[in-house]
Design a protein around this nucleic acid. Sequence first.
RNA 1: GGCCAGGUGGCAGAGUGGUCAUGCUGCGGCCUGCAAAGCCGUCUACGCCGGUUCGAUUCCGACCCUGGCCUCCA
Length: 466
Amino acid sequence: MTQTEPLLLYNTLKREKQVFVPQDPNHVTLYVCGPTVYSYAHIGNARPPVIFDLLYNLLSSRYPKVIYARNITDVDDKINAAAAEQKVSIDVISKRYTDIFHEDMAALGIGQPSIEPRATNHIPQMINMITRLITSGHAYEAEGHVLFSVESFDDYGSLSRRDVADMIAGARIEVADFKKHPGDFVLWKPSLEPQPGWDSPWGWGRPGWHLECSVMSEQHLGETIDIHGGGQDLVFPHHENEIAQSVCAHGGKIFARYWMHNGFVTFNKRKMSKSLGNTLVIHELLKHTAGEVLRYLLLSAHYRQPLDWSEQTLTRVQRTVDRVYGVIRDANEKYGPLKAAHDPSNKFMSALLDDLNTPEALAELNNEARCLANADDAETAHAAAGRLLAAGALIGLFQQDPQSWLTGDTEGLDDALIEQLIDERNTSRKERNFARADDIRDQLQAMGICLEDVADGTRWRRSSDQ
RNA sequence: GGCCAGGUGGCAGAGUGGUCAUGCUGCGGCCUGCAAAGCCGUCUACGCCGGUUCGAUUCCGACCCUGGCCUCCA
């Protein structure tokens, strides 16, 4: 049923939702700009990986083969600066933060992309592309640099809707005098001794920062890719420059057919960014918040909208996720082990197929949770749970054991002590010593433990409040 | 200055030309020894001003406000 419904994606190129039609349904290609590994990733950095992980899941449910490439930028001046500051080699920096990035992404339930190419593994290919661009008249050498000539490419500015002429007027930085046009950007630049470098026809140097994505997508996905994604701040200049490089290197062939850009995570309505110093590092957040809660939170707003962060948001999502897990646990106990159905509900799928409308999809998921809680026979319960768990599987939520979810995150708690107190309370209850029983409940409450008296005894869970 | 988003109920956040988003919170109820969990009910929502329309939060225009990009940035 759902297979016949089209997938709509908002294409930044056209500024409208379009029906997604792959150039080859048997080989769908997706490229997403990955991290520059020079420090910890903040929660805003996790938004594209979560969104495109979901898109990858969705595409994989409809097409037999989807290749998803997400690069690692491991040559960059910020890495050089971090290495210099910490007096270690750049490899140490990029290895350390690549590993941490992987840990963080795994905690958020993000699967590995099909390919994770690294810039430093593609230097010869970069040199090759630069050579092609020079030969075809789109790039020129000047004072040890190689620059892309924006005036050589008529469509320059089409993605970001910018006029090349405006760029001169609006230029806020000092323009290097060897540039033919202020908008020309670096493909290759000379390196000085502490900086990393490679031999090239233009001397010892390193690549400019836009080149790697053009080169790696060409090598791993081909000259024309289906979908290219990233944050809205990459539209200009990064993606604009990628288009210029790739289209000119490929004799005018279209580079990416659909461009998708996510909005920012904001903090007090301001963009979260390292330069503003208002970032929340994922690695820190994970110390007291489950990755699944962060994932739900990141999906709770539509991907193109800003997502404002606050402590209240975190608490709210924690409670929502706890509630759904509680419903699943109760149904599990009542109706036996519940299993995911083959497919989520049509409403859920329709929401996702409409440009990844995750808030609507989550609303539907919550409706199914309520449906499950209201079920009063096994058949209804299994049907509701099947839809709920299938939806969760696609979107990357509610796949953990509900019992361990509700009791699990209790570091520093002594299970034996909890059980002992519960026994003592139940003894008091039998003796109708309710004052004593309530004291014990309060004592456990203070420990962050919430008691629930059910038909066959007393069970406990950690409190939803942090 | 140029370009681009957005202003929805106590809060978060979808959506629609004329019935319901959903979540969190508050309030009332069911249940409970009391609770918790869950369920049910509930709280004059659509920035401002005009226009189109039988009817606009939804379409059109003006205005106000917020944020983003134009420099590294997810």
